[in-house]
Design a protein around this nucleic acid. Structure first.
Lengths: 219, 219
DNA sequence: ATGTGTGAAGTGCTTCACAGCG
DNA sequence: CGCTGTGAAGCACTTCACACAT
């Protein structure tokens, strides 16, 4: 019952992503006044296998009550803790173009423990301004200093592909250890730095691939 | 040597995504004047295994030249064809908020065979306007008609989570078979409809998870 | 009776290693 | 000789199926 993590368990990235999904669903359930939920019920909600959900949760201890299921409030707190979401995290966005500006004001981004503290750009015309939501646009040169002073833990890259690797190196040198890249480029992060990519073009191309296959079968 | 697909080969989604990555890299190589490339060289570029690249490509025929590698221009054309990127695709975006507007003007989105034809919103204050790049904002009620008339094949969902499932159903009924969802919600698509999700919050939470683990090891 | 936790089986993706072609 | 194409081995994730707790 102690909050300690089971020591031997190595948690896969896929499991961690599913935990986020479970967490969101538990918040919905809690808001709806549901107090306990079975792995079965959750599985149906996501189109997953119930054993997978139990395995994911069992990595961290025995949260379930046999014969009953999981207590929604408890499980929510446990997952929040496991994912490290108890503390607020400061985020900087590099690139104050269309996408960067939109992300700075995106509601889902500026909530649930995340706070966007600044945008950075090297375009002097943009520096000094603010996003509609009020996030300030600062000079790229100030990035290392501001990142350290604000203790920003996460950087979002919304810069052109050609500049992305350089910016990644810059923010890494500034001590940032977690980076979300929106630039359509394959980047290399130094060890100890977690880099995730959201490549919109690849997503679209992948959709086209499925469309093309469907059209072919249809013929 | 004929362009025909090998019949038995079932292509996995992961392979298809990597093909998009290869394609992008081949475009770079071609622009740099490189005419042939080995799987080794490409593997180093992405931090992948060379056998994987060869396997991915071998699904569709024997494109390589033994002892030499792959001819960049040929391989690029083949992958373009395999991914179904020979034809232009029309895209609609539902939700003309910050994110939808930014996506409509996003350079990487409006290029390489993709064309964003319209934004849709049910907010009368937005309808009739345009994005900065000139994409018109139309009334949601006009969606089915416009989608069919324009033969839009892809829809991007940039609406609030609470509305997402309804909008997904609406665009599905309008005949759209490929959907990219940005709303933070688990949606269910009917059979025959491909649904991909870009869940920014889950990405951020995943980064925090890695940060939290790193901090723990550090202690 | 009900639903968790988990070893074992199943599935699919990745990597190895080498035959074979240019 | 160099590099592709590919069967076989390795590995990771998923699903099954059931003992066991309540």
């Amino acid at each position: 019952m102690a909050g300690a993590r089971r020591p031997g368990a190595e948690i896969s990235d896929l499991t961690a992503k599913r935990l986020s999904v479970y967490l969101r669903s538990l918040e919905d359930l809690q808001a709806a006044g549901v107090t306990t939920v079975s792995s079965q019920a959750m599985a149906e909600k996501f189109g997953l296998n119930s054993a997978q959900i139990r395995k994911d949760l069992a990595c961290f201890g025995e949260f379930g009550v046999r014969g009953v299921g999981y207590v929604v409030a408890d499980l929510k707190d446990q997952i929040t803790r496991i994912l490290g979401l108890t503390r607020d995290r400061k985020v900087i966005i590099v690139g104050a173009g269309n996408l960067g500006m939109a992300l700075a004001d995106y509601a889902g981004f500026n909530a649930g423990g995340f706070r966007i503290v600044a945008l950075f750009d090297n375009d002097r015309g943009k520096v000094g301004g603010r996003s509609r939501g009020g996030v300030p646009v600062l000079d790229m040169e100030a990035l290392p200093q501001i990142a350290r002073r604000e203790k920003a833990g996460i950087a979002v890259l919304a810069v052109p592909a050609a500049a992305a690797q350089k910016v990644l190196d810059l923010v890494s040198r500034a001590g940032i250890k977690a980076i979300l890249n929106f630039a359509p480029a394959q980047l290399k992060a130094r060890p100890g730095v977690t880099l995730k990519a959201v490549d919109l073009k690849i997503q679209l191309e992948n959709l086209v691939f499925h469309l093309a296959r469907a059209e072919e079968v249809h013929r």
